[in-house]
Design a protein around this nucleic acid. Structure first.
Length: 727
RNA sequence: GCCGGGAUGGCGGAAUUGGUAGACGCACCGGACUCAAAAUCCGGCGGUUGUGAGAUCGUGGGGGUUCGAUUCCCCCUCCCGGCACCA
């Protein structure tokens, strides 16, 4: 909006109009009565209502979290907008700020989000795997290390870590904490050098990819902890590879059996103690499971046994226990940007955080604003944020943060189902939901699809809908790439289909796109090939009109057929069967189209115009129009009206393959010698396996390759292939 | 780094359950039609070799299982998506 010198609302509405025009020009069948815009108060009113309900239930809470602050633009930046530590527009060095923000307790649903994946038979396995890994349920132990030498007055308690490898506990040689950890803060109190190191860590990126690939750095805190089982004193380090947001923000380091600890220990000359061996390699770091040694009373135990024994030993000392842990974190939904749904909270000096009462919703975002590029307009607008407390009627201020846009996209499908309801959604949602077929880019495999599943469960639990999961079947489209990377609004490398529609018409544009690649595969966008799609439609058009010009006829039903016509009719019905399977089961539109092209190529070779030939031609053309109608509807309707005057293709039934027409009395066998193709033979369908073997061996092209060798074995794959093994 | 995918002719892709690699289309080459061009129609089109029939190699690289591997297993390379504030 800043770049285009317009208000975000005007910009958004004009984009919606542009996109709608294109969708209409492509001839898509959309019920525009149900159109919604998530930036309109009629829509976001309901998610504000849900927010207040969840807030009251304790499923939304506030805590401080770190954001990227651009001191020049006076705004918070998304991770994507920080490039090499600098703001993408201003180029200013980005600072970190800890500010209070609202979080959704998605972790309260972690177990259900995980187990319900098993119900989603209509989802691709890869998406379910990604979600399982993201939720990341792991089984391990929490282990406590008493801290040495700190005054009891500080009351920091023990240093707690979480580990999935309790079997390696006896090999722990140091512990490491994240820069954000309380113990790091404490140790830095009288240690300026450490304080500077911690500050440096905090300046770094918060993105996990950056943390994981950064050079490992650390600093000794000078503090020691006691190993809970062997009583050894272990040094406490601050390390940049420890994630503050996972587990306890602290790890026990076992360099002998962990890659990252190993690298770190080598760099800082920390001791490395091997305690696990298996039958494979003993080169360190050895990260596989094995049998314990160097572990006193636990020697000789395997992974499961040692996990039980060590967790028991910890329990006895009250210094640890078994625990399951999720990688999933709560979802931070506060955004400090203007363009979004206002968070419906009022801050009152007396009553604290008060959710806006339902009768006062929606909290409307003013659309008539000037974007000066510095900060959010509503944060500077007293007419927006000055209000009275709904509880005590005293002076109060509105929350000026807005919601993450994922909030909007997490439930729109439920609103489509009851688009004009005077609540978030009504009984009609239960009629329509779950969505039969959801289609979306693979880039949404985790975040959007997990949030939508989460929202579905939240809406179920406030009594709005009944289903447990929002989407029965999921088709994940591959990315459309341009110049090697994802085509997207934020990259600004999108291609407008308008030029194709203008030059060739909607049907050619549709056929070309559907023919280019299967939908689940990523595709580098290129226009080459659009000519071919256009040519095919012209050929189809001409074939139909050439046929109709000779007079109206009816499709073949019975009567004697020449071999040529019989073969064509068999191909027709095989094509009908294949297209139905490609559309319905495989979502493989490109192969459906190519099989119709093959059929049309075969039809073009038939030149006879007697009554039976014309009846077969009529049958082929009618069916081709029907099969292609979902992809090129306009042309197919026009052709249908020629083939069957006074009728419309929308009233016609979807074709069914005729089994009798597909019967074959002869089959072609591929004949191989030692797996190498040597020729083909045509065999009566009824021929016995032994006769097929005998016939194959006598073929001249087989005999040639059997000179000087003898047949060891013959493999017959029914209706396909014979392989003669000879040596 | 971790998680999930992918790699097949000059190009997009096909081969659905381990069974003819390259369907269909693009581009290109040759021919027909034309004064000429466009359009259209016909034919060719993975590499090497051979006059030819054919032979042989070939699905990112290396190994393995199998009568038979683009397909299954192990190792590796490169590319794409995601990594919690792009959505």
């Amino acid at each position: 909006a800043i770049k285009n010198e317009t208000a975000p609302a005007a910009w958004t509405y004009s984009n919606i109009e542009h996109m709608k025009t294109q969708l209409k020009q492509l001839g898509l069948g959309v019920d525009w009565n149900r159109e919604i815009a998530t930036c309109k108060p009629e829509y976001y009113k309901w998610e504000q209502w849900l927010f207040t309900e969840l807030f009251k239930k304790g499923l939304i809470y506030k805590k401080t979290a770190t954001v990227n602050w651009d001191p020049v633009d006076g705004t918070v930046l998304a991770n994507e907008q920080v490039i090499d530590g600098r703001g993408w527009r201003s180029g200013a060095l980005v600072e970190k700020r800890d500010i209070p923000q609202y979080f959704m307790k998605i972790t309260a649903y972690a177990e259900e989000l995980l187990t319900d994946l098993d119900k989603l038979d209509g989802w691709p396995e890869q998406v379910k795997t990604m979600q399982r890994n993201w939720i990341g349920k792991s089984f391990g132990c929490e282990v406590e290390f008493p801290i040495l030498g700190l005054s009891d007055k500080l009351q920091v308690g023990n240093l707690k870590v979480y580990t999935t490898r309790p079997d390696t506990l006896m090999g722990a040689t140091y512990v490491a904490v994240a820069a954000e950890h309380a113990l790091a803060t404490l140790a830095a109190h009288n240690n300026p050098q450490l304080a500077e190191f911690i500050a440096e860590c905090k300046r770094g990126s918060v993105a996990e990819a950056d943390v994981a690939t950064a050079e490992k750095k650390g600093m000794d805190t000078g503090l020691f902890v006691t190993h809970p089982l062997n009583g050894e004193q272990l040094p406490v380090w601050v390390a940049n590879y420890v994630l503050a947001s996972y587990g306890e923000g602290a790890v026990m380091a076992v360099p002998a059996h962990d890659e990252r600890d190993f690298e770190f220990a080598n760099k800082y000359n920390l001791p490395i103690k091997a305690v696990i061996k298996n039958t494979g390699t003993d080169v360190l770091p050895m990260t596989e499971h094995g049998v314990l040694f160097n572990s006193s009373q636990f020697d000789g135990l395997n992974f499961e046994e040692s996990t039980d024994a060590i967790s028991s030993a910890l329990s006895v000392k009250n210094l640890g226990k078994k625990r399951t842990q999720f990688r999933l974190r709560d979802w931070g939904v506060s955004r400090q940007r203007y363009w979004g749904c206002p968070i419906p909270i009022i801050h009152c000096a007396t009553c604290g955080e008060v959710p806006v009462p339902a009768e006062q919703l929606p909290v409307v975002l003013p659309e008539d604003v000037v974007m000066d590029g510095v900060g959010s307009p509503i944060k500077k607008d007293p007419s927006f944020y000055e209000t009275t407390c709904p509880t005590c009627n005293g002076k109060a201020t509105r929350e000026t943060d807005t919601l993450d846009t994922f909030f909007e996209s997490s439930w729109y499908f439920a609103r489509y189902a009851s688009f004009d309801a005077d609540k978030m959604c009504d009984e009609r949602a239960n009629y329509w939901l779950p969505v039969d077929q959801y289609v979306g880019g693979i880039e949404h495999a985790i975040l959007h699809l997990l949030y939508a599943r989460f929202f579905n469960k939240l809406m179920r639990d406030v009594g709005l809908i009944k289903n447990d999961e929002p989407f029965t079947n999921l088709l994940t489209q591959g990315m459309v790439l341009k110049d090697g990377s994802k085509m997207s609004k934020s990259k600004g490398n999108t291609v407008d289909p308008q030029a194709l529609i203008d030059t060739y018409g909607a049907d050619t544009a549709r056929l070309f796109m559907m023919f280019a690649a299967p939908p689940e595969q990523s595709l580098e966008w290129a226009d080459s090939g659009v000519e071919g799609a256009h040519r095919f439609l012209k050929r189809l058009w001409k074939a139909t009109f050439d046929h109709v010009e000779l007079g109206v006829t009816t499709a073949y039903t019975h009567g004697e057929l020449s071999t040529e016509l019989k073969l064509l009719r068999r191909q027709l019905h095989q094509t009908i069967a294949k297209v139905a399977d490609d559309y319905g089961r495989r979502h493989s539109f490109n192969t459906a189209i190519s099989s119709v092209m093959e059929l049309m190529n075969a039809l073009a070779k038939i030149e006879t115009t007697d009554a039976v030939s014309r009846a077969i031609r009529q049958e082929v053309l009618e069916n081709v129009a029907l099969l292609l109608s979902p992809i090129v509807p306009h042309i197919c309707q026009a052709l249908w009206a020629e083939l069957k005057p006074n009728s419309t293709i929308l009233d016609a039934a979807w074709p069914e393959a005729n089994k009798a027409a597909m019967v074959q009395d002869e089959v072609e066998y591929v004949v191989q010698v030692n797996g190498k193709l040597r020729g083909n033979m045509t065999v009566a369908k009824s021929m016995e396996k032994s006769a097929i073997e005998a016939l194959a061996v006598t073929q001249p092209f087989v005999q040639k390759h059997l000179e000087g060798v003898s047949v060891k074995k013959i493999i017959v794959v029914p209706n396909k292939l014979v392989n003669i093994v000879a040596a």
